[in-house]
């Protein structure tokens, strides 16, 4: 019995020394397994109980259990010490928080899409739907239905790419006006963004492939003031709340009255001295596109009575908006889409 007691005392002492010496959780676990594990030192001693006289066995069992409890207590303390050392070590770390960040694979949408989406969002909030349609369109949708008969001089200003005798790449998104009005009865409230093509030589201000955002509202009692209201709102959406919008009389066969729409130059705000603003040329205004009240002939073409319904339409060039919005120096950058251009504008 005293032999057992001595054995257990020695064991505890060794265990304590090993536990204290263990560095790290794994080493401590190894110590635990060596002493308290299934085949550990304690188990070996426990196996000797059978050799003791029966009367001594309960005492021996208790002595072993007490020793195990003490060792487990000791182990806990050692574990706590190890963990505390680990936490201290971790807390001792100190990094340079200004070191360059590790960037994720950055995705982005094209600035053209961003402008289209923001424009469309503005109109959708006001109850408009967004429709999209084909780029190769018959001349009927591009011209005839829009009150531009063949031989009309303004067909010249839509210098187009022809694919067949009657099909061309749309020079504007206006065919979607006709398609939508033929498919639906008033009220019509749509925005139609999309790619257009005109035979313009490529330079810093002209693309032969560009995007437009077109809008059309036809219902009872829609007037020019509503057009001004929505387009003023759009410009403020895109350029900020102080933005002013100017409507100048103009001529388009498919609207009457017609207007050119300008907005305050976002770069110089009209304050460039005797004007060499690189964006607006010093006029203080940038041109956004055309607008006007839908021509009665266009309404008649789709079977609407112009004495009952009235409406307005507009078409803006998206890359032109982009030039002004992002201060891009050359419109061709929208189509070369270089990584740096995309990264800067994303």
């Amino acid at each position: 019995m005293t032999q057992l007691t001595q054995l257990l005392a020695e064991l505890q002492e060794r265990f304590g020394a090993d536990a204290d010496a263990a560095i790290g959780e794994q080493a401590l676990e190894n110590v635990r397994v060596a002493y308290l594990g299934r085949n550990g030192e304690v188990t070996k001693i426990r196996r000797t109980i059978g050799t003791l006289p029966a009367a001594e066995r309960p005492g021996a069992g208790k002595a072993i259990n007490d020793a195990v409890a003490a060792m487990e207590e000791r182990l806990k303390a050692a574990q706590a010490a190890v963990e505390s050392r680990a936490v201290d070590a971790e807390l001792a770390a100190s990094i340079d928080v200004t070191f360059p960040a590790i960037a994720p694979a950055a995705g982005s949408i094209h600035p053209v899409r961003r402008i289209i989406e923001e424009s469309c969002d503005y109109f959708m909030r006001h109850g408009f739907a967004v429709v999209v349609g084909p780029e190769a369109e018959p001349d009927y949708y591009n011209f005839d239905a829009l009150n531009i008969p063949s031989d009309h001089p303004s067909r010249e200003s839509f210098d187009s790419f022809w694919l067949t005798d009657s099909v061309l790449l749309r020079p504007h998104t206006s065919p979607m006006q006709i398609r939508t009005m033929q498919e639906h009865r008033p009220p019509i409230a749509i925005v139609a963004p999309g790619k257009c093509f005109r035979r313009d030589a490529l330079d810093a201000r002209h693309l032969f492939q560009f995007h437009q955002v077109e809008g059309l509202l036809v219902a009872d009692d829609i007037h020019f003031g509503h057009l001004k209201g929505m387009l003023t709102g759009l410009c403020r959406e895109l350029f900020g709340s102080g933005q002013r919008v100017r409507f100048r009389p103009s001529y388009f066969p498919f609207t009457e009255p017609s207007a050119e729409v300008d907005t305050t130059c976002p770069k110089c705000r009209g304050e460039s001295a005797e004007g060499r603003c690189s964006l607006c040329g010093g006029s203080g205004w940038i041109e956004l596109g055309g607008a006007g009240m839908v021509h009665p002939n266009v309404l008649r073409e789709v079977g609407y009575d112009p004495d009952v319904y009235s409406g307005w339409a507009f078409g803006f060039g998206v890359e032109r908006l982009g030039l002004a919005r992002y201060r891009v120096d050359d419109i061709r950058r929208f189509i070369s889409s270089e990584p740096d251009f995309l990264a800067q504008l994303s």
Binding site: H126, G127, F128, A129, V131, T180, H184, P187, I188, A189, I190, L217, A219, I222, F224, G225, H226, K228, G229, M230, T232, G233, V245, R246, F247, R248, P249, A259
Partner: peptide, 17 residues
Amino acid sequence: YDTIEAVEPSVPPHHIS
């Protein structure tokens, strides 16, 4: 044209998708 007041229209409901 600048004498025409800008007003926001109230757009009637429709079924265009």
